[in-house]
Design a protein around this nucleic acid. Structure first.
Lengths: 197, 197
DNA sequence: TTGACAAATAGACTATAGTCTGAGAAATTA
DNA sequence: TAATTTCTCAGACTATAGTCTATTTGTCAA
């Protein structure tokens, strides 16, 4: 990495850091891009060179969630356990992470942004690690004879995905006012019951 | 209703009609408020006197959905049938209505708007007819001994609500590219299975 | 070393949702 | 009917996300 790239990265990091702090303190919609560039001593040009939009800063943070799944969460699952148990734990830890580390304003912002027609959706990238993990767990469950066989693993993943979308959306409009991990568990129990043999 | 109220209502209707036509033709985000007021020969003042926001026009249309549930949909349910069957039909008809009469852009816009912190959410009004209908169907199902009894009807309604949120959100980001009624049916079958005894 | 090139940035400018103020007309009151 | 209040609307104005163009500065090849 040469000097120019280093400087650019430094600018990007500075913007990202300050912006996330501000979002955290005041909420996403109460922070303006002008404020961010003023606080970082940069400019519109710098800002939009590094980020596609104001939302985009959050998206970068949100994308880390997939690293979290792969690096932190997956290794904690015991291969010996039933698929049901693994899925349960997976979702449970996911919710704790979202509740603690991300927070409802991040989720709200991401979910809002994904509804914008203009840009392509992050949620629709088919090879997101999240989907791959869920897929392999569903296949595992079918192999072990736990899950119904009249549904394809793809269909099951879709069902789980929509379950998560539903609860996170609901959590967002409720401004994080209910326990995500508790409510998710209740919903999961119902869905998994519907998917077992 | 006096003359002034009549005129005002006329203005409101004109704005609403033209706006919805434009949204329908060009998509919500490709229509500007300036265009609407120009086409209707009105003004910003008139527009924002009648609607809280550009989104709000859609919300009015969307609120009709609850009338639809009560007036059109509910009477078609045979009280003799099982609660499961009634719920299934209810959701089925709901999806057809949404798919045909509202369309994904309306849903997308509503769902996006509901994520705005500023205004109070329509989804969170606890006595929406939709929730009341679902509630009574869940109570019915428990009375008839079809459904689990370790969950309260409220909890079941919440689960159904999140199921719907999940699939409609997903449908929106997919720009209406999958069959709502088909996919909803598949999801419902899983969820109801998890709720039955 | 120098000149061409490309990347990064500054900041003016644009587009557009939404606010604010005032004016005129209708309703209400005396 | 005259005075007063209130509702509806017009349109100028504001706030803010995002675009565009010019400038600077580092890079690289000859």
């Amino acid at each position: 990495m040469n000097l120019r790239q280093q400087k650019a990265l430094q600018t990007k990091r500075k913007i990202s850091k300050v912006a996330l702090e501000l979002f955290n303190k005041k909420g996403f919609s109460n922070v303006t891009v002008d404020e961010i560039i003023e606080k970082t001593g940069t400019s519109k040009g710098a800002f939009y060179n590094h980020f596609k939009s104001k939302h985009d800063i959050f998206l970068e943070k949100f994308k880390e969630i997939d690293n979290f799944y792969v690096d932190e969460l997956l290794p904690k699952l015991d291969p010996q356990e039933s698929a049901k148990e693994k899925l349960k734990k997976f979702f449970f830890m996911q919710m704790i992470y979202i509740e603690k580390d991300l927070g409802w304003d991040v989720i709200r912002t991401i979910y809002e942004n994904e509804l914008n027609t203009e840009r392509e959706s992050f949620f629709l990238i088919p090879d997101r690690p999240l989907y791959q993990i869920l897929y392999s767990l569903c296949v595992d469950g079918q192999k072990k004879g736990e899950f119904r066989e009249d549904l394809t693993p793809e269909q099951m993943v879709t069902i789980f995905t929509r379950m998560i979308r539903g609860i996170l959306y609901d959590w967002s409009i409720n401004k994080g006012e209910f326990s995500l991990k508790g409510e998710q568990e209740a919903l999961f129990d119902v869905v998994i019951r519907g998917l077992m043999k």
